[in-house]
Amino acid sequence: MFPFKMALNASTLFPFQLSVKQQLQVAAEAGYEGVELWMRDIEHYLADGGNLHDLKQYGDELGISIVNAISFFTWADADATVRKQGMVQAEKEMQLLADLGCPAIAAPPFGNVEHVTLDDMAASFAQLVEIGRRIGVEPYLEFWGRAKQLSTLSDAFSVALQSGLPDVKMLLDPYHMYTGGSAVNNLAYIKDSHIGIVHVNDYPADPDRATIQDKDRVFPGDGIAPTAEIARFLHQTGYQGYLSLELFIADFGGQTALDIATLGLTTSKQAFSISDSYGKEAR
């Protein structure tokens, strides 16, 4: 049984240098229900004369939803001026996404955050969410395993709690759980309503955890990630939202973008399927 929906993060297709519309087309043709677009690609599309209405209509025609956007703004930076600039950028981008019909944006610990306390980060995140909800776009709190602060799932829990907001949504990612040392069983403390989206990927044993990089991520099921355990925890929360395939592989050889998108959909569904108590695939 596969109780989730599948999305494709556009990073997976970066080696093919596709336009935003081509990214949507490939994802739809491969069978995904949603896509995560990168703000830089949306901005390139607009700079080349495109408009948000046409892009939204194109996605609607293809039957695929734009479910989240990836951006980097300094919402939690230690410097107040830089942090304010980050909030201005975030507000501008969220207004754009609202016009596009995209309901969410990732909020990772981008910038100089090494000496920012989790309490201060929580206050900044509350401000960011207030801006987003006024516009109609939800910031998803994302932790990065290699960040100087907000690097673990427990850090994200702390920021969410200290924000004072009862319904903070987090972005989960097995790679960042691995590199930051987050315990998989901590997922048992999450409610489905607190999960915005889940990035899916896998990682090999070599390079080791200390030296592995984004480019070393592999397709779900091809590495050592406890994927089946993660899938069970997500299912136990009642989560039925999007899993989004996020890879940064630099070269896929002679394969096409559609080949890779199709392969990613197949491997993700296989790796994150839920088995019954007898170890057989539930039907």
Rank of each mutant, 00 (worst) to 15 (best):
F2N: 00
F2W: 04
P3K: 06
M6T: 15
M6Y: 03
M6G: 00
L13P: 05
L13F: 08
L13E: 03
P15Y: 04
F16S: 04
Q17C: 01
Q22D: 15
Q23S: 13
Q23K: 15
A27V: 04
A27S: 11
A28C: 06
A30D: 09
Y32P: 02
G34M: 14
G34N: 08
L37F: 00
L37V: 12
W38M: 14
R40E: 07
I42D: 07
H44I: 08
D48T: 13
L52G: 01
D54M: 09
L55E: 02
K56C: 05
Y58T: 10
G59S: 14
G59T: 10
L62V: 12
N68F: 00
A69H: 13
A69W: 06
A69M: 10
A76M: 14
D77P: 03
D77T: 01
D79R: 03
D79Y: 00
D79I: 12
Q85M: 13
Q85P: 08
M87E: 03
Q89I: 14
Q89H: 09
A90K: 06
A90W: 09
E93P: 01
Q95S: 15
L96S: 03
D99T: 15
I105G: 01
F110C: 11
F110E: 08
N112E: 11
H115S: 15
V116A: 10
D120M: 12
F125K: 04
L128C: 09
V129S: 14
E130A: 12
E130S: 15
G132D: 05
R134C: 01
G136Q: 15
P139M: 07
P139S: 07
Y140H: 06
R146E: 11
A147W: 02
S151F: 01
F157T: 00
V159I: 13
S163E: 00
L165D: 09
M170E: 00
D173M: 06
Y175D: 03
M177C: 13
Y178C: 05
S182R: 01
N186W: 10
A188N: 09
Y189K: 15
I190S: 01
K191F: 04
G196P: 12
V198S: 01
H199L: 15
Y203W: 07
Y203G: 03
A205K: 04
D208P: 05
R209N: 02
A210W: 01
T211R: 03
G221N: 10
D222F: 11
A225R: 00
I230T: 05
R232F: 06
R232H: 12
H235S: 13
H235T: 13
T237G: 07
T237D: 11
G238L: 00
G238E: 11
L247W: 10
L247C: 01
L247Q: 08
L247Y: 04
F248E: 08
F248Y: 13
Q255C: 01
Q255G: 08
T256F: 04
I260W: 08
T267V: 04
S268K: 01
K269W: 00
S273H: 02
S273W: 06
S273M: 10
I274N: 04
D276F: 10
Y278E: 11
